[in-house]
Design a protein around this nucleic acid. Structure first.
Lengths: 341, 341
DNA sequence: CTGTTAGCGCCTTCAG
DNA sequence: CTGAAGGCGCTAACAG
């Protein structure tokens, strides 16, 4: 299986027992003091804390957790750390955890639901207080484990499916629809789409579907596509934009699968001297910081990843018991009118 | 202190004992099977695995860890998740952990060494197999805890100080020096510096020191500074570049504290129609992806954050015992000649 | 306010 | 190849 790390026998042999002996009190007293729980005379507390400091005693939470059947861990399962949006979710998680003495344990799935299954099994074996995941795409086994665990389960990012327990995010389908409506109102009629791998990024697909719906309601459709094979990146955005414009010169606006791709599109235009948005317009998704700082701010939809992570934790802390009905928390989105579309 | 989460009494009452009873074997047998350790007849193994699956049994690692005195956790302490370099380090950590059944527990300090102290105390109470931190800037108490813990301690990012145990990173002082040499060779003589808060980012300061050294060796010096008060960002890069150019028009090249700031500088030039690198040259640090994709690739120094995280874990897995002498692992850097300087 | 008594769930001997 | 006993370090009752 894997490599186990035997704890060094060196220092860390300091236990409650030793502290109790040295301070001439019982183990429970030391325990009470360390946890700030129960009544203890100020005098004993100080005496004990003195020897605690002197010995450099650090309570063993593994043991504490086992004895009290309390958990101090929250599992967080995200597809990857290379897409900036997930670290942003983690920031929210950290913010939400502030002052709660729960520790996040983070694993990545690399966009693979079988890996997710393994990772979830591993995390559940730590008996976490709750588990947060990205999206709704799980194996049956994963789903079963999550249901059986009895702990709170948060599926983050979108709210376009029925969650196991809690969903926190925004409707990507509605966001895509809003993009379509917005661009139509601004007078665009010839739409292109620049995207990346839909199998790995199902939310990008949801946005695309919403967009198509809006166009179709107006009697329009997407006239050309340029799709990258793999993950989204600025580099792919440049490449695919070039391809799109070469293959379909009539396009006056391209909707991008996300801001990474869209920034690539903007860079292509800058490099080629294409005037934005008159000659060609670019619309992204995510509201990444970089987009705001471009010479012309990127037109995009802002979803609030930080808020997603934060709300997820807050919900879990607020009601540790899983209710019978699923909970859905909409963190909403906002159309940002930049200078590129 | 904080909110404790009582484990739900609902489902998760399945223990080795129940499994053993149902499968008509002893607890030890179940335990052996779950851990793939020791001899077990193929027939019993299958019988037991059957009931394990049927009951949805997930071993409790809290208990396992306590009983075996083995640890399955690695602590990772980073300043923040908002600076992209730290998620990159985490990626390397995850990569290095692949197949080792250790789980990373991540905490952030928000660039505050007192918070770091609290965070390290919390992590050590989980008796991790090792702990990774960013940098050498700790409180005395933190340092003491780390030394006493007996576990492997990795201080990541730079190697410009003597580590408690292991240092993994590159010499930022040497990198700064290399930037200076490189730019002098390319003929630049009037240097400016665009930076951000040195108190929070000591490595930026080290690079600056190295740069000054190189200039001084050539009889040159930095003629103008523009410093942001807070953290680095593309936005601050734009603002400070404008300030620098307004206050010191003679500057022909600006060295930036990092790529975020430098990209801001490039955006400023794009927006103002300043020709790079002839009219004004920009040099960054970090080798962020975004820099490569600019209409003109950013000239910068590449440090390999992924490698830092990966090497850190690899070293810790390779030798779990702390040797008497500190270990220093140089992940090196590379001057990247882009089109902006 | 403090001590005593039983475990928490599992793993490691050591027998058989 | 399998089982029985004891304990990992701590905490939840309960007494006093």
């Amino acid at each position: 299986m894997g490599t186990k790390q035997r704890l060094p026998d060196r220092k860390s042999k300091i236990t409650v027992r030793e502290v109790a002996r040295r301070a001439n009190v019982s183990e429970s007293t030391v325990s009470r003091i360390m946890r700030n729980k129960g009544l203890v005379a100020e005098a004993t507390r100080e005496k004990v804390m003195e020897t605690v400091r002197a010995m450099g005693y650090v309570p063993n939470r593994i043991a504490g957790s086992l004895a009290s059947l309390d958990s101090f861990l929250v599992g967080v399962v995200i597809p990857s750390l290379s897409n900036i949006v997930f670290p942003e979710v983690l920031q929210g998680v950290h913010a939400g955890l502030e002052g709660s003495d729960l520790q996040p344990v983070i694993s990545t799935t690399e966009y693979n639901i079988d890996r997710e299954e393994a990772v979830v099994r591993g995390i559940l074996s730590w008996k976490p207080a709750a588990i947060l995941l990205a999206g709704f795409d799980h194996t049956d086994a994963t789903r079963k484990m999550l249901e059986q665990s009895g702990i709170r389960v948060v599926e983050m990012m979108d709210i376009d499916s029925t969650p196991i327990d809690i969903a926190v995010g925004t409707s990507h389908r509605r966001a895509g629809h809003a993009i379509g409506r917005h661009l139509i109102e601004r007078g665009y009629r010839h739409f292109g789409y620049v995207g990346h791998d839909w199998d790995a990024d199902r939310r990008a697909r949801l946005r695309y579907d919403g967009l198509c719906e809006a166009l179709s309601e107006a009697g329009l459709s997407i006239e050309a596509h340029a799709m990258a094979d793999g993950a989204s990146s600025v580099a792919e955005g440049r490449i695919q934009t070039a391809r799109l414009r070469a293959s379909a010169p009539q396009i006056d606006v391209a909707v991008y699968s996300n801001d990474d791709m869209a920034v690539g599109g903007v860079f292509h235009c800058l490099a080629e001297g294409i005037r934005l948005p008159d000659e060609f317009a670019v619309f992204g998704f995510n509201g990444l910081d970089i987009g705001k700082e471009l010479p012309q701010p990127l037109s995009t939809v802002r979803s609030n990843r930080f808020l997603i992570g934060k709300k997820a934790i807050e919900e879990v802390l607020a009601s540790p018991e899983r209710p019978s009905e699923p909970t859905i928390i909409d963190t909403d989105f906002e159309v940002f009118i930049g200078a590129t579309a």
